[in-house]
Simulated scan of single mutants.
Amino acid sequence: MHSFRKPSAETVRKFLDAQARLDFTYSPVGATADPFPPPSFRLNHTRERIGTGREAFERAKTALRRWDQFRIGWAEIQPADAPIREGEVVAIVARRLGVWWVNACRVIYVIDEDDPAEPRARFGFAYGTLPDHVGSGEERFLVDWDAETDAVFYDVRAYSRPNLILARLGYPYMRRSQRRFGFESVAAMARSMAAQGMATPTK
Rank of each mutant, 00 (worst) to 15 (best):
A187I: 08
A75E: 14
L164D: 06
R5H: 12
P39M: 12
G51T: 00
L64M: 07
S40W: 01
R5Y: 15
A199I: 09
K6Y: 11
T202S: 13
G30R: 00
A60K: 02
R5T: 13
R106P: 07
F4I: 10
F183I: 12
G87T: 04
N163E: 03
L97T: 06
F36M: 14
A190D: 00
Y171C: 05
E55A: 13
G98D: 08
I165S: 12
A195P: 09
V102G: 01
G73M: 11
S40T: 10
A104P: 06
A33P: 00
I92Q: 14
F41I: 06
P38N: 08
W101R: 12
W101N: 13
F141V: 05
F41N: 03
D132S: 09
R176L: 15
F183N: 14
G98E: 04
Y127V: 01
A18L: 15
Q19L: 04
A194H: 03
V93D: 08
M198W: 03
T52P: 00
D115N: 01
V143W: 05
A94L: 08
D132E: 04
E88F: 10
R66G: 02
V90S: 03
R49D: 02
T62R: 14
R180E: 10
R65F: 09
T46G: 06
A117Q: 00
P79Y: 14
T52V: 14
G197D: 05
P7G: 07
D155T: 10
F41Q: 01
E76H: 05
R42I: 11
A33M: 13
N163P: 00
A158Y: 08
L97K: 02
P35E: 04
A80H: 12
D68K: 03
E139Q: 11
V90L: 12
F36H: 14
R176T: 09
H45F: 14
I165G: 11
I84Y: 09
S27Q: 14
E88G: 07
D17R: 11
A94Q: 02
T200N: 10
E113P: 00
G53N: 02
L164F: 03
S8Q: 00
F15T: 01
M1R: 09
D81L: 09
L166K: 03
V110K: 01
E139W: 02
F57R: 05
F57Q: 01
T11D: 13
R65G: 04
R140D: 08
W101F: 15
I111L: 14
A187V: 13
Y171R: 08
W100G: 02
G87P: 02
S27A: 13
R140H: 09
V102C: 15
I108E: 11
M174I: 15
T62P: 00
F57K: 02
L169W: 10
R65I: 14
R5G: 07
D23A: 12
A104S: 12
L130K: 00
V102N: 09
L16D: 05
R47I: 11
R179S: 09
P116D: 06
A33S: 13
N163A: 02
E48S: 14
Q196Y: 13
L16G: 06
I108C: 11
I165T: 10
F123I: 03
A82G: 04
V110T: 01
A60F: 07
R168Y: 10
K203L: 15
A195L: 10
V107F: 05
R140K: 14
Q78K: 00
P131N: 08
E55K: 10
G98C: 06
Q196G: 12
A147D: 07
V156G: 07
E55N: 10
D17Y: 05
T11E: 15
